[in-house]
Design a protein around this nucleic acid. Structure first.
Lengths: 142, 142
DNA sequence: TTGGAATCATTCAAGCTGTAAATATATTGG
DNA sequence: CCAATATATTTACAGCTTGAATGATTCCAA
């Protein structure tokens, strides 16, 4: 019951399309929620990923983007008084990103918006668990 | 053994990050392969999704992008002699996209490149099958 | 049959995203 | 101490995406 190599390649291409499609849906949902709060999609993603103080590099990795892009996004958030660049406690090269009170409050509102109508809400928690495992495996094994 | 609602929301957010991360990896891989052939990532994605003749709208849906964007990409491919806009057999509004011989040949080369080192190759065919089912369910149930 | 609504494709403008290279500062290891 | 490396930033530029407006065509229902 093994799959022929060409069939396997076709299946893998379809999978690429599905992954991109779902990511697109997630991005759309984020953008809609962000617009409600006067944010761009990137700014909202940054806010979503700011689960605690972290460096620029950490945030870049969480956002799956380049550090130079993170600088741009954090600049915007800083001008809106939502985030602050503090000196890093141990590494003077790095910045310690911290949400302000306003930033934390807005993040909470954002998370509330993101929770309703998510593209992933069609899956049961069990299915989401399986999906989580598979995605993590794909990301770490590459 | 049910998960509390807030824990559930946290898990869903993590899942969003993973989906975006994997999509990013796929996009990078496509870009690298595309560069080898002198194509942009979008052009390569269009070529990959051209499994047969289809309309602009069909291609846009397969590429998960707006039709206006597809016009732009197809313009480029047409200028390179890889694709042609034929009149649609039954609907005079629509275009019937068809790959040229060169387009078909380049598509084959592209598929060969895409098949090696894919971000999804870390998963077994069985795991890919499960992933396929979950992604499809998430996309159609929304 | 005919008029209005909806669909397909295109164009245009504007902003966002992404890469890449260069720079300044700071850390680490030999 | 010095060379190599890491963090963050800046700049430039191409590409992507959205959104709205337009024209042609089709569909549907009165």
């Amino acid at each position: 019951m093994t799959t022929p190599p060409d069939q396997q390649a076709i299946a893998e291409r379809q999978l690429c399309g599905l992954v991109s499609g779902l990511a697109q849906r997630v991005a759309e949902h984020v953008r809609e929620c962000a617009a409600t709060l006067g944010l761009t999609a990137s700014q909202a993603t940054a806010l979503r990923e700011m689960t605690g103080p972290m460096t620029m590099r950490d945030l870049a990795e969480r956002m799956s983007c380049e550090p130079s892009n993170t600088t741009f996004v954090v600049d915007k958030l800083e001008k809106q008084g939502l985030i602050e660049r503090h000196p890093h406690p141990t590494d003077r090269r790095a910045k310690h990103l911290v949400l302000t009170a306003e930033g934390t409050a807005l993040r909470e509102r954002l998370l509330g918006l993101l929770a309703v109508g998510s593209p992933l809400s069609g899956l049961t928690p069990q299915e989401q668990g399986v999906l989580h495992g598979l995605l993590e495996r794909a990301l770490t094994s590459a």
